[in-house]
Amino acid sequence: MLFIRFGNQEIPYTLTRSNRRKTLGISVGQYGVSVVSPPNVPFDKIESTLYKKAGWIVRQLTDLDEMKTAVQVRRFVSGEKLPYLGRNYRLKVIKADTYTSSFRFYQGQFLAELPKEISVQNHREVLLPLYINWIKERALLYTRERIKRFTIKLQAEPIGITIKDQEQRWGSCTPAGNILLNWRIFLAPASAIDYVLAHELVHLKIMNHSKEYWETLRMLLPDYEKRKEWLRMNGGTLDI
């Protein structure tokens, strides 16, 4: 982890060198500050650019901190609501004579079954991984169907799709043509999910963020700026 100092504040950031980048890119997201640079950019130039943008970076981090305070930490008890695709669904927890735990969606609500001996304090520890796995499984099916509207226009399809726990991004596209998606994006409404899907799919043809890239994205999503801004403003709340 690298750092720059802005006044009395120390700002950590990650630096990635990429042959796909033609210009220096700085982004601020729920996991912090990320810098992606072409391989030949000197480190002192990278730092100089960061210092010039330090005020903007601090404002973005402050906005994200404010949004994170709105995130409700779920305890996974009966009556709580869990998000999926922009909606919240009630959770019902059943204690039973069983040695295993289960989690599913049934008749408009989430239904979890736990062994009787598991205390309320341990509900989250047991059920959160099951909930995340449920999201990942449904998200993969959802994505395969959802991207058809874009792949037809783009005339390009990914080699594969993987739903995972991305550390820095909502999504990414590998040089081999695989699309990787953060499971948390599937807590958002379909409009935000579509933005991430379209964003990564365009990288199948254009690996940078050139003018041509953004024009192609606009062809798929004419209002992509609105969706991108929603995600910037609300992305910090997409967690459990």
Rank of each mutant, 00 (worst) to 15 (best):
L2D: 13
I4G: 10
R5Q: 09
Q9M: 11
Y13N: 05
G25V: 12
I26G: 02
G29I: 10
Q30A: 15
Y31K: 07
V33L: 14
I46C: 07
L50E: 06
Y51Q: 09
K52Q: 15
I57V: 14
M67P: 08
K68Q: 10
A70C: 12
Q72E: 14
R75Q: 14
F76P: 00
F76L: 01
V77L: 09
S78Q: 08
S78A: 06
E80M: 12
K81M: 04
G86W: 09
Y89C: 06
L91R: 00
K92Q: 07
F103K: 01
F105K: 00
F105Y: 07
Q109R: 10
L111P: 00
K116C: 07
H123N: 14
H123A: 02
E125P: 00
L127R: 02
I135F: 06
K136M: 10
K148P: 00
F150P: 10
T151Q: 10
E157S: 11
I159V: 08
I159S: 02
T162W: 14
Q168E: 05
Q168A: 12
R169L: 11
W170S: 15
A176G: 08
G177P: 07
G177M: 01
N178C: 02
L180K: 05
L181Y: 10
N182V: 15
R184D: 04
L187Q: 13
L187A: 11
P189N: 10
A190Q: 10
D194Y: 04
L201W: 05
V202S: 13
H203E: 14
L204F: 08
K205L: 10
N208F: 01
N208M: 01
K211Q: 12
Y213D: 03
W214Q: 04
R218Y: 01
D223H: 07
D223W: 04
E225N: 11
W230S: 02
G235I: 08
G235R: 08
G235H: 08
